[in-house]
Design a binder for these strands. Structure first.
Length: 423
DNA sequence: TCTGGGGTCCTAGGACCC
DNA sequence: TCTGGGGTCCTAGGACCC
């Protein structure tokens, strides 16, 4: 019988910060989104203060100050590195690991005897705690959706000791009957509303729905969810990540952009970042969509939103090609007299760099482009991202997002290593 | 003053083709 | 008065996820 474990880091970003600063071990901690915008990770202590997921920071600033909340900008370099360490441990425990997100992985448990699964979970999480300092939660079920549900149960019921096994059908049903249908993985607010209208209110109700009815109601996705809740595994473990299909770099500005020059700098910087991502994955873009818009929250600003698409003569991941495209798109849609709050570039239909047909008479010198990009990536790899950049990405960068409370890159930058004093 | 970023998948509808 | 049918491809938009 198929079986999955879902293991995830508790308040993962906050836990990463705690690993390197014992002084905040007992304090409430939150981590903010890009541009220090919203709270995207909260410890149990922070949740207890009433800080919601995605809550704008400016609304809770006073609350944080008055309650001694430790507030951090997001430090993705640190979290990404910690995530890699966790997965390295998981791979020692299971040959088949799917990295589902930065803080969640699925493990194949099929070969672990049902009676041994809880012990397996306890041992795994205590090893992770000891080796990385990150507290985790291990949830087990016969399908991915039920493993996700087991994770929800473990989080809501601390007496389970952060390990929850829903292999047993009767145990499973009693938990399902006690949870709202919206807690099920794949049931968002729109589907929840629809289901409520039909009297399907709990996860248990949904598990009892006829699969064909679920398909009519919520398409094949909903049908799959129902089958998975019934213990029929429909979503296999994907231990080899599929080739990515798109690549986007979009950012809110630190301060609104009102002039074309600033906008051109910003999109050039995004294009540079996109080039790094594409080359790392061995992919090329065939076109680029460029967009910009004003703030949807600020009622006083005149609203403006625009988007355009620029096609490449041939697929490319050369930073300078990308910058040219981004800037030409931005020139086309930029209007004077607006306060833009955000811009971005989006590329879909990516193709493998190696498999691209080349024109017989190539106007560009591909070898030179490749050598230049390799050198650029090597310099930035060695001295840190942003060490060598095209001048068109700007010097002053008024538009750049804020990260006023970012912790050091403890594990990936030699100059930012944590210091321990022995007395 | 201050409200994130980056993905995936599905469906419907139009254009186009034979 | 009659006015096919079936297929593909593309795009926009919705829904969901972390």
């Amino acid at each position: 019988m198929t079986s999955f474990a879902l293991i995830d880091g508790n308040s993962f970003y906050c836990s990463c910060e705690r690993v390197f600063d014992p002084a905040i071990a007992k304090r409430p901690v939150i981590v903010l989104s890009n541009n220090d915008g919203c709270a995207v990770a909260r410890t149990a202590e922070a949740k207890a203060l009433g800080i919601g997921m995605g809550e704008p920071y400016f609304k809770i600033r006073d609350l944080c100050r008055d309650n001694g909340v430790a507030v951090y900008s997001s430090n993705y370099t640190l979290y990404g590195d910690m995530s890699a360490r966790l997965n390295a441990i998981y791979r020692q425990w299971s040959p088949d690991v799917e990295v589902y997100s930065i803080d969640e992985s699925f493990l194949d448990m099929t070969d672990i005897r049902p009676a041994d699964r809880v012990t397996f979970g306890r041992d795994l999480r205590s090893t992770v705690q000891r080796w990385t300092g990150i507290p985790t939660c291990v949830a087990i079920g016969p399908s991915k959706t039920l493993a996700k549900f087991a994770n929800h149960v473990a989080k809501k019921n601390p007496e389970l000791g952060a390990v929850c096994d829903l292999t047993d059908a009767a145990v499973r049903q009693s938990w399902l009957d006690r949870a709202a249908v919206g807690e099920v993985w794949g049931v968002g607010s729109a589907s929840e509303r629809k289901l409520f209208g039909l009297g399907i209110e709990t996860a248990g109700d949904l598990a009892r729905v006829d699969a064909r009815l679920a398909r009519n109601l919520l398409s094949v996705v909903g049908e799959r969810t129902v089958l998975e809740l019934q213990g029929i595994s429909c979503l296999p473990l994907e231990d080899v990540p599929p080739q990515r299909k798109g690549c986007a770099v979009t950012r809110s500005f630190g301060t609104p952009v009102t002039d074309l020059a600033g906008m051109l700098e910003a999109v050039a910087a995004y294009a540079m970042r996109a080039g790094e991502k594409l080359r790392r994955h061995g992919l090329e873009a065939t076109y680029m969509a460029v967009f910009m818009h004003t703030s949807r929250f600020n009622q006083k600003d005149k609203p403006h939103s625009a988007q355009t698409t620029v096609h490449f003569p041939e697929a490319s991941n050369d930073t300078f090609d990308l910058i040219r495209a981004a800037q030409s798109g931005a020139r086309k849609i930029f209007r004077d007299g607006y306060r833009y709050s955000k811009a971005g570039i989006i590329m879909n239909d990516l193709v493998r760099a190696a498999s691209q047909p080349r024109p017989l008479f190539d106007a560009r010198d591909r070898d030179q482009s490749e050598r230049l990009m390799t050198a650029l990536d090597a310099v930035n790899g060695k001295f840190g991202r942003g060490s060598l950049v095209p001048a068109s990405t700007g010097i002053k960068r008024h538009w750049q997002a804020k990260f006023d409370r970012r912790s050091p890159r403890y594990t990936t930058n030699i100059k930012e290593l944590p210091v321990a004093l022995a007395r």
